[in-house]
Amino acid sequence: MTLRVSISTRLGSYGTFAAISAVGIALLFALVFIQGGYLLTVMQLAMIYGVFCVGLNFFMGYTGQASFGQNAFAAIGGYGTAILCVQFGWEPVAALVASMAIASVASLVVGYPTLRLRGHYLAMATFALGLITYDLSVQWTSLTQGYMGYAGIPPLGIGRFVVEDERLKLVCLMAILLFSLWLSGRLRNSRFGRALRAISTSEAGAAALGIRISQYKLAAFVIAAVYASAAGSLFAHTVGFISPEVFGLQMVVVTFTMLYVGGVGTVLGPAIGAIIASLLPEIVRGAGRFQDIAYALALLVLLIYLPKGLSTLADLGKRRPAEQGGGN
């Protein structure tokens, strides 16, 4: 928690909000750890999606671009890990890092031509990339085993130390998410992060200030891809099984929901969104066969009344002049 607080003091205007949400999240985790069982799995997945969204936030939030195809890189991570561990008997950590390297190369190759596009055209091109990856993961059975997927992926661990306890898994995932959040917070306010945010405000203005737009966009895209790959690998190690559905269109919708419910472009937003959007189906589960309707309605209400995400709740208690110096 000290990590969280140090981020919040640095961000100033988000201080109170971050403190409140930190307390809320701490209580939630306390409940989850005592309760155990299914809630542990839900929170594990929330942490993994959180890592994915923190990465996506670099590209969509800070840089203001659109990518509907990050699931492609999560698939690279998941399948990379699965194939390296199951077929070649690699160490989980080595497989995770190797997959991240593959994803970064893939995103460089794919991003270089694609990122010349703007707005909806970029969104569509990345969307096509995601769909192509999904279809390939279904059809290229010699590599991916098609709908069968890969089972028996070993849990995360180094050498003889293997994380098999569900509670310990959650702690590790939490640590990884906090680390990625810390990285995101540091980068956001660095020279690099300021350049990205300048691009999101005005490309022409940023170019006039000497920022190499295409290089920075590509860098943000690669960072997002590496985060996505890490999330894909973590999913494989945590659940122990992957199939094409894991990295399908559903993943795009879910992660977008998380990003926009939490607050796109903020540091903590993606993580908060991941936790809330993961818990939402569990909360509305009581509605029985109206569950999906309740979920859609809840999402619509959130979007209509807090279109810039839950993180903007912080602005409600903020004094007007403070907005000038606000982080956003």
Binding site: M60, A66, V253, F256, T257, Y260, V264, F290, D292, I293, Y295, A296, L297, L299, L300, L303, I304, Y305, P307, K308
Partner: peptide
């Protein structure tokens, strides 16, 4: 409320889910 464009797009996806259900 001047929602970001992609939030509106996400909302249309939610509308699709709602109507399908």
């Amino acid at each position: 409320r001047k929602a970001p464009m992609f939030a509106i797009i996400l909302a249309t996806l939610a509308v699709q889910l709602l109507i399908e259900q």
